[in-house]
Amino acid sequence: MSLRLTARGLSLGHPGHPVLSGVDLDVAPGEVLTVVGASGGGKSTLLRALAGLLTPTGGELLADGRPLRGPGAERALVFQEDGLLPWRTVRRNVELPLAVRRVPRAARRAPVTDWLDRVGLAGLERRLPRELSGGQRQRVQLARALVGAPRAVLMDEPFGALDPQTRASMQQLLLTVREKEQCTVVLVTHDVDEALLLGDRVAVLAGGTLAAVHPVPHPRDPAARAEPALRRLRERILTELT
């Protein structure tokens, strides 16, 4: 059920000011691909193009081999912050993808409650986003992205605005959630360690082009952090980024 996402010679931006140029990328179904890059390196642009919010100026984007046209519910998007609708309570934010799909009200309750539970927000259903901490808001976004059982989840620096402790617990939450969900994940981050911890493969974007794509040894295993192979890969990615 998970989605294959493919970019072929993807270019975006204005002539003379390319944000992305000639990006070839293939994200296998069920894979977690993390994308690292410096600010302004085109990572958000790549993600928004995959979400269908931006139209490529060159090349093509495919979902399961078919041209990708515009945004759709099978590709859920998680923003760095402020992605929640501030007038909706936690529950009403999480149920929004189901409401958009015209799922009857009664049928929305169970999956929403289930997801709020899984991301650790049980009991906070009636809070407004502004009454939550930054980490709790990202939990809401995660629940909202996954409640509709999307085939791919696209995450744009989802933990970038969080303090280190909250960040670590959110990374752990994502790993836990991922064990049951088989959807494809593309996660953009500027943090190499995060990219190595969460990804099956790490794509390195520098200056709008794809510098390299590395398979991660011991993927999604926090205990393997000290492995020499991982440390060497980390050093290599840091060189590629500069």
Binding site: R75, A76, V100
Partner: peptide
């Protein structure tokens, strides 16, 4: 109205009418 709210609803598969009722008017 911040464009992000509209993008959120569009990536849920929401069309123009949904964006209008769920984002633009309340926002």
């Amino acid at each position: 109205v911040p464009p992000r709210w509209e993008e959120a609803v569009r990536t849920m598969g929401g069309g123009r009418a949904r964006v209008l009722w769920s984002v633009v008017l309340p926002g």
